[in-house]
Structures are given as structure tokens and as C-alpha cells.
Design a protein around this nucleic acid. Sequence first.
DNA 1: TTGTATGCGTTATCAA
DNA 2: TTGATAACGCATACAA
Lengths: 364, 364
Amino acid sequence: MRSTAPQTLQRDAPAQAARSASLADVASLAGVSTGTVSRALSRPEMIGKVTRERVLAAANRLGYVANGAARALAMRRTMTVGAIVPRFGSSSFPTMIQALERTLAAEGYTLLLAAPAHHSVHETPILRALLERGVDAVALLGSRHPQEVFGLLAAHHTPYVMMWSAPGSAGQSVGFDEAAAAGLIIEHLGNLQHRHIGFIGGQTADNERALRRLQGLTQAIAKRGLVLCEEALIEAEYGFQEGFEAMSEILTRRTKATAVVCGNDYLAAGALSALDRANIPVPGQISIASFNDNDFAPFLHPPLSTVRLPIRQMGERAGAYLLAKLQNSEPPAPALLDVELVVRCSTGPCPDKPLQTPSRRAKR
Amino acid sequence: MRSTAPQTLQRDAPAQAARSASLADVASLAGVSTGTVSRALSRPEMIGKVTRERVLAAANRLGYVANGAARALAMRRTMTVGAIVPRFGSSSFPTMIQALERTLAAEGYTLLLAAPAHHSVHETPILRALLERGVDAVALLGSRHPQEVFGLLAAHHTPYVMMWSAPGSAGQSVGFDEAAAAGLIIEHLGNLQHRHIGFIGGQTADNERALRRLQGLTQAIAKRGLVLCEEALIEAEYGFQEGFEAMSEILTRRTKATAVVCGNDYLAAGALSALDRANIPVPGQISIASFNDNDFAPFLHPPLSTVRLPIRQMGERAGAYLLAKLQNSEPPAPALLDVELVVRCSTGPCPDKPLQTPSRRAKR
DNA sequence: TTGTATGCGTTATCAA
DNA sequence: TTGATAACGCATACAA
């Protein structure tokens, strides 16, 4: 057997630098056909033990690594999933993406990441780039997308999932009920006798999650007969600094608000910092609560009351959904993940007299 | 002209669902050859205006998107760059990756992300997966990698860059001089008359950046004749909670340290929180300073002194380096980015008497 | 300027 | 179980 294989055959080019080894190289080294090598590597059970071992040895010796492009061309799939996640640098998206990536990697899929700096970057060309790369599936952030996006996806028969999207959206989505989350916060504040509520939220024009949080809050406040104070309602980019500035701004206004809800914990951390600087006791003169995109609420000063959102789980579920679609196994159920209120000492009972900031003590 | 193109020709299969349109489909719709279509799309200047427009129209009508696998096979490149970034969910890596992604995307490259949950996951199979996907270049985190990794990279003639790596490494790396950063911190503390220094750092076994920070600190302390207090030297995962716990632990020990340096700002935030809970004035009884992986140091309580590390810039430089390699244009210079000390009120002069924690007031 | 034909490295089909 | 050979869809060298 061995004699048929010209193992001592030198490669034509003595300069090894030419190309990486191909299937044909392995085949000729092992003295078999390319088909056999292909099967020996990807379907070992179809091949006789001795040949298989010869092939494996040859492949090893040449440091053979399959050419994915050729494989993709022949198999019509790339084992690759695309994700489009805007503004992913400064938020909790990375946590979600990591969970997604891990879930997919467990089944041999690799993540192609497109992370436009701004949401405003038009999605379509990005999606085209991903489709051109032959992604087998796509994960999108949110449920608001140009019709073109869904058209392209459909035209390419590419399964997709929307993460962090509104509850009702289609079915191929996974997200939280942020209205319910808002309800939890407001119920808690209401029970503490707060009647005038402020909100430092994300930018609703740009960010559908921020919009849903504001809407949920507005509804919950209305339902309970409370008041959303306009003078304590600010939209800002999610960030420490923005939260600091927003709260500072509120302090310069006259507001009846005795509790301020923050759109996420970055904003809340900044807001707490501003209150600390201004020597305003929290709670006492004012209570703070927040939606929780990250995990440092317990370590703020004072520890922050939040609605905890299962970010990691969302990434996992999205991945599982896509895998199910790709392997058309389990029937993929649309997912609406549970949120949970975590009360910490940044919220307390409503004070007897409303907040009077030092800078504007005089009535106008 | 138009008449030569059978624009009214119906596709054979009335069921559009079959396959996405190929070059051949566009060609027959436009009444030209596949070669012409290919050129019209990727080298418009080589094609007559009228034909070009006919082709473009046809491509548009069919929603044509090139098959990247076929293109990659023919062109021998994928316009794709791989990145391997462990523990990417909870750190400043996302900021860096986003910068990297944006830089690459500007030149048409897409990022393939491999984000193993732990550093311990063996890199080689991950790199193999990326190479199999045909990445044109690779970005690695850190400079410590199994020899196998560099072997594979070389065998595939794949350019690579190491991010956040030690200064001396090869040349294809971009990073900070973390020893210099440590020097800045220690110099500052020394000037404030602190002589006994503690350190809450990352895990050196697992994390080469943490190791470099510890080493840099040790050297700087030795050079200035200060003391690194063993009882105030703790390694922990980067995280708020871990910082909290580490500082709490230090408080239960007897320590001469009057200043504690933290390995990153997550740890520092946790540490500050622990001191706040214990009612220990910062600065006053103790000073805190930190390496700054993120950007919330100004919003902590009290605002944290840090060495600011240009994370975003690192991602950009790494991207630029790879692009230069890929387009073999500018000679890519190895980069060592500047760090900067930012003093805030968490560090103050050395107190007259050392820290005595309430829980252990009695001398042993 | 445009058409023709070949190669890229796999997988899959069909014989042997 | 194995070998020969035809796709896969695009780019490109060469011819016209």
C-alpha cells in the first residue's frame, strides 16, 4: 500500500512560500484522490481506517487548513453569522455580543461583526457587505429597519433575528418587555408616595430602546395618576458625563420631581455624581432609580435601584434561535425575557418638602 | 441597443425562490457576457457607458449581490480581518474593537470576531477557524501566544498585529508603555509623601497586561525607594465587585499602605465603594489611583486619579497597520502610544497616622 | 470595448 | 471503500 504513495516526492517548488497546501497537495502526498482526502477529513466514518490515518498524517505534515471560500462555494454555506450592532463601543452591547458569539461558536459558527459608529449610518450597505460575505444568518439590533433590509434578507433566504426589539415584532425577535420594566419602577416609586417623577433618558429619535422606555414610563405614570415633570425630563446620550450634566441641568431648574428615573445606569451614575457634588442627599431630597444595562449598580454611591435586564441571556437566546433556524431543529419560540426589580438604597420615601436647589432658592 | 437585450425574458423558474441571482443571470438579462458584467460592477471605467448602465440596471432589478465565496476563490482574498479577543464582554476591549472595526470598514474590510469567554481557551483552534474562513489579516490581543500561532500565521502568509502588547514585541504590535504609566502614578504618590503603597491588580497568571502593570509598579516603587506592602497586594478579576471585595479584605488586615493603586478603573470603583461603606475618608486616611481602561473616572466618588490610556487610538492604529500591510502602502511603524496622568481628588497627601480600620483597632 | 475560456479548492455525484 | 469528474460563481488573461 505504502509503496503506491510517493511519500518522498518533493513538491515542485522548493520554495515552500508559494501557496498554502491544498487538498490536492495532501492527496498526492498520501497517494489518494482529492475526494478521499475530503471525506477523510470531514466524514471520517466513510473511510477505511488505514487510508484515513495516512491522509491525516499527510494533512498534518503539510499543515493543511481547508480553504473556506472553496468549501463555501461548494457547500453553499459559510458557517458564518453576521451581526449589525450600532454604537457598540459604549454600552452593554458587548456583553450581549459576547454571549451571542459564544453560543454560535459552540456549533462551529463564527461571528462577522459590523459595528457602525452611529445608528444613523445606513444599514443597507452594511447588510449587503455581510450578505456578500455569504453569512448564513444575521442578527440585527432592534426592530426598526428600512424595508429594504427585510427585502434583502428575504431575497437571500437568510434567516435573521432581531435582538432587543419590541415585544410584538414578528416572532423572530428576542427582547424585554421594557414597558413592564417601567411599570415595576413606577409602582415602586408610587408605593413610596412619590408623585412627581423626572426622567433622564436616552435619545428617542435615535434609539428605539430609549423610546420604548420613555413610552413605558409615560404609560405607567399615567395609569397610576402620577405626574411626569417636564422640567425634569431630559434626553441625552447614554454616558456618565451626560448623566452628570443632565442632572446638573435639572438642579438649575425649578422642579417638583422627588424621584428621577434614569434611562440606563451610565446616566444614573452620572446623575448620582452630580447630586453628590451638589450635596443633595439621596435618598432624602431625591430618589434615583434606573434601567440597568450593566452590572455596577450595587457599587455606586449610593447603591442604585434598578430593573435588571438579562443582557447575556438575550445574546444566548438570539444565538440559539439562529442555530435552530440553521439546523432547522427545534421550533424556535419568540422570546420575551423576564426583567426584575432590584431595590437598593438610592430610592426612599418621598420627602416632606420638595427639592430646593441652593442656586435657585428664591421663588420666581 | 435596447432591443438586443431581451429584457422581457422570463427567468426559467417562475418560482423566484430558487437561488439568489448570479453573474450569469445578470448577464443574460442585460444581454452581455459574464465577463462584461463582472467588469461593469467592479471596474466601471473599463466598460462603455451604455453597456455599463444596462448592466447596472439589470443587476439592480435582480437585486444582485456578489457571491463572496466565489470572489474570494478567484481573487484569493476575502476582504475580511479576523480578531481574537478573550474576555471581551467586560472590559474596555469593545471600545478598541469598535475602533478597529471602523478603521477597517472604511477600506471595505469586515471584521470576523472570535471572542472566547476565557483566556484559557486555547487559541490555536480559534485561529485555525479564522484562517479557514480565509481572513486576509489577523489582530491578536497581547503578545503572549503559543509558538503554533505564529507558525500558522507564517505558513499562511497572513499579516497580523498584536494589540495591547508589550513594547518590545517584534514590531508588528501596538500598545502602551505600561511601565511608564506605573512610573507616573508612583511619582505622583511619592511627591505626596506616600511611602507605603498597596496594589489591587488583575490576575497576572491569566493576563499579561495585569502582569506588566504589576511589574511596572514594582520597579517604579523600588526605584523611588518606596515600599510595596504585601498585605495590601491583591489580585482579582477586573470588576466592580472584585474591587469592592479586595478593598474590604485589605481593610480587615493591618496595613501600612496609605495609598492603593488599582489595576483598572473597575477595580478602583469597587474599592472606592468599599471605603465609602467603611466611612474611611478618601483622600485623608487613604489615597486611590488607578490605571484607566474606561472613561468614568471623573464620575466616581470621589473622582479618581488615573493614568489615561488611549484605547480607541489603539484600535485605530492596529487597523491602520493592518491596512498598510494589506495594501502594502505606507511603511507600518510599530506604535507605542502615549499615556497621560490625570490627577483628581482621590489622591491626596500622606496622612500623619496610618490607616486604622474600625474592625481591628486593637494591636495584635 | 467586449466575449471566451480557464482556474480558484472544495464537495458531491456517479461509477467502479 | 475509493476514484474520476462535474458543479459552485466569480475574476481575469487572452482573443477578437
